[in-house]
Nucleic acid binder design. Structure first.
Lengths: 350, 350
DNA sequence: GATTAGCACTCCATCTTCCCGAGTGCTAAA
DNA sequence: TTTAGCACTCGGGAAGATGGAGTGCTAATC
C-alpha cells in the first residue's frame, strides 16, 4: 500500500524537523513548513494515518509525532535528498585527506576525527585484511656482533622491521645464507606453517643460527598477527553527551563503554556494498538498539578494506552523515586504492 | 600550628569515608568509625575547628563535612596508608605487563587500560623523548627495479622502515653507494640539518639518485618527527559517568572532551620525581580545577620517559591509585629501563 | 469525498509548597 | 575537657497546582 505524495511530504517534514529539534513535531508546524497549502486539520488526519501504518509514533496522546524506525527507513530509502557539504567542510575534509602521510593509520585516524567532529556524532574506523597475509620477503641487516635488523615485507607491500639482540656472537658471513633460507622456506606461508617448518629445521642448521632464525620467525608471526587483526578505533565518543537523548547518564555510559570496549561488534557494510545504514532496532547488537549507525567502506590496495562509520541517535542527520562519509570513503579509496603504499604520494621536496 | 592526633584521625576518617561514599560525613558516623572512644559531641567540636582551619568544608549549615583540597593534601602527605593490591589485581596487572610484546606502544596501552579499569577512573599514558633523536644508521634494500625499502635506525635503537616507489628505474649498483652517502652525511643530525644538507647536494649527485635520496631523507625526518612527538592516549574516559560528581552531563562532557582533545596539557611529574599528585585547584589547567590527577613516570631506555596517570574527582582513592600506579611504573621501568628494545625479551619458542 | 474551522479534552513540563530527617551549634552538667 | 540534651537549619523529595501545546472529533464548506 503506497502513501500519497502529501503523506510522504509530511513524513519528510516530520523526520527533518525532528532531526534538527529532537522534539515531537506538531501539525501546525508541519502546515507552516509546507507553505500553508493545507490546513493543520488536514495534516492531523494524515498524521493519524501515518501513525496507524507505523511510520510515526506519538509519545503520548497530546504530543506531536516523532518518526518510527520504519519512518526513518522510508525516509532514507526514498525521501532523503543528498546532503551538501559546505566549502568550509570540504576544505576541512580535504585537509585530513591530504595530510603529510607516512602512515595509513595516521590518515585514517585523522579522517575519523574530522568526520566525527563535522557530524557531531562519535565515529569509528577499522581496517581488515580481505585475505590472509603472508610474508613475501625477508632481509637481515647485521648491525653489530650481536644484533641485527630483521625486515619483513608483507604480501601487501607493507614493510615492518625490528632490531633483534642475540646473546651470542653473529658471524656476518652467515647472515646472507640465513636470509636466503628464510626467503626460500618461510615466504608465502601462514604463521602456523612457519612454526611448523621451524620445528623441522631444528637439526638441519647450526644451533647458533637457529636462535636468530627462530627469533626472526617469531617476529614475522607477530607482525602477520598484528596486521591481520581488525583494529578498531573510536573517536569523539564524548559528543553523545551533547545530544538530548543521552541526557540520561546511564544510557550515555552504556553506549560509551560499548563503543570503547566491544568495538568488535560494530557493524560493517555487506561485502561489495559501499555503505550501510542501520536504523535503531535493525541493529543486531543489543547496545545499539536505539541508535543508528551509518558505515562506509573503502579499499586499500586490493587486499585490504577499511571502514569508517558514525554512531548516533536514530534521529541522526542521515543526509549529511552519508554525504560526508561517502566523500571520505571515496577520497580514501582514491588515495590508497590504486597504489601499493601511501608513501609514494609524497611530493618531492623542493 | 599542628593538629592534635585526634583531629588528624578524624580528618582521616572523614576523607576515607567521603572517598567511598561521596556523601558528607556526620559526626555520629565518625564517632562510630573511631570505635566509640569519644562521643559525637566532642567530634563536633573538633570538626568545627577543622573547618575553621580550612581542612574541611560543609556544603551547608546542617550537613556533614567534606574534605577541602587542603584536607586532601594533608591526608595524602601524612595520613594516607599505602594501598594494598589484592592478589587478583596483582595478577591482572602482571598480565598486562607480561603480554607478548612486539611493541612498546602496545604494552603501554594495555597498562593504561588495566590501570583505568582497576582504579575506576580514566587513565592516560604518554611517552616523550628526553633528548633529541637522530638517525644512527640507514639501509637501502632494493626490491625491484623501481622500488626499494628504506630502513632507518634511530639513536635509541628503534628501527623504522618503509617501502619507497620511484617513477624511474633504479640501478642496483648505485644503491650501496647511496646508502654510504646517507650514513656518512645524514646520521646524527636533526631533521632541519638533514634538509639543509640535502639542498647543498642538489648538484653533486645524479638527478635520478637525488630523487631516491630526497625521499629517503623525507621519510627519515617524518620518522624523527613522529617518534619525538609526545603521544598521549586516554583510556576509560567513560568511567567518569559512573561517578556521582559527574552526574551533571555538562561537567562530564567538559572533562571528557578535555581528556580527548587537549591531551597535551595533562600534567607530568617534575623532572626526577617518580610521582606527582595534584589535588583540585592545585591543577594549573582550568578544566582540571575540580578534579585530581595522580601521575607516575617510568624510564624507557635512558633517553625516553613514559607517563601513566589517572584523572578522577578530588575524592579519588589516592591510596589505591598511587599503589597501582607505582606498581605499574616500576614494572614498566624494570621491563624497559635496562634494555634497548623490548623485543629482546621474547622467550625463544620451544 | 476531501478539506477546514472550532472546541473540548489530554497530558506533560514546570513551578510551588510542604514536610521530613539528618546533622548541626550551643548550653549546661559531669 | 568531655558529654548529654535540645532547638534549629536546610536540602531534597513528594504532592499538588498551573498552563499551554497539541490532539481527536464533529459539523460545516468546497
Amino acid at each position: 500500500m503506497e502513501l500519497t505524495d502529501r503523506k510522504k511530504q509530511i513524513l519528510k517534514v516530520v523526520v527533518e524537523d525532528y532531526i534538527s529539534s529532537a522534539e515531537p513535531v506538531g501539525s501546525k508546524a508541519i502546515a507552516q513548513q509546507m507553505g500553508g497549502s493545507v490546513s493543520s486539520a488536514t495534516i492531523r488526519n494524515d498524521l493519524a494515518d501515518l501513525v496507524e501504518q507505523g511510520y510515526l509514533e506519538q509519545p503520548h496522546t497530546s504530543a506531536g509525532r516523532i518518526p518510527s524506525p520504519k519512518g526513518y527507513r522510508l525516509y532514507v530509502n526514498e525521501l532523503m535528498e543528498g546532503g551538501r557539504l559546505s566549502p568550509v567542510e570540504t576544505e576541512r575534509l580535504n585537509q585530513a585527506l591530504h595530510m603529510k602521510m607516512e602512515q595509513l593509520d595516521r590518515v585514517v585516524s585523522q579522517a575519523g576525527k574530522a568526520v566525527s567532529s563535522l557530524a557531531g556524532y562519535p565515529a569509528y574506523t577499522a581496517t581488515a585484511g580481505k585475505k590472509k597475509l603472508f610474508a613475501r620477503h625477508f632481509d637481515l641487516l647485521p648491525v653489530d656482533e650481536n644484533s641485527c635488523i630483521v625486515v619483513v615485507m608483507l604480501g601487501n607491500n607493507r614493510v615492518k622491521s625490528q632490531l633483534l639482540h642475540l646473546q651470542l656472537m653473529l658471524d656476518p658471513e652467515q647472515i646472507p645464507a640465513l636470509a636466503n633460507l628464510l626467503n626460500t622456506h618461510f615466504t608465502n606461508c601462514s604463521a602456523d606453517e612457519m612454526n611448523q617448518k621451524l620445528l623441522h629445521m631444528t637439526d638441519q642448521i647450526l644451533p647458533r643460527l637457529f636462535l636468530l632464525l627462530s627469533q626472526t620467525v617469531a617476529y614475522a608471526t607477530d607482525v602477520l598477527d598484528e596486521v591481520g587483526r581488525r583494529e578498531v578505533q573510536t573517536v569523539g565518543a564524548s559528543q553523545i553527551l551533547k545530544l538530548p537523548e543521552f541526557r540520561d547518564v546511564d544510557k550515555a555510559h552504556d553506549l560509551m563503554s560499548f563503543l570503547t570496549d566491544e568495538q568488535a561488534e560494530l557493524p560493517a557494510p555487506d561485502e561489495g556494498a559501499p555503505m550501510k545504514i542501520l536504523i535503531g532496532p535493525e541493529n543486531v547488537c543489543e547496545a545499539l538498539r536505539d541508535t543508528s549507525v551509518v558505515v562506509a567502506s573503502y579499499d586499500i590496495g586490493d587486499d585490504m578494506r577499511g571502514l569508517i562509520g558514525v554512531v548516533g541517535p536514530t534521529r541522526m542527520d542521515y543526509a549529511s552523515v552519508t554525504a560526508r562519509l561517502s566523500y571520505f570513503a571515496d577520497g580514501l579509496t582514491r588515495l590508497f586504492g590504486k597504489k601499493d603504499l601511501p608513501s609514494t604520494k609524497e611530493e618531492p621536496k623542493t
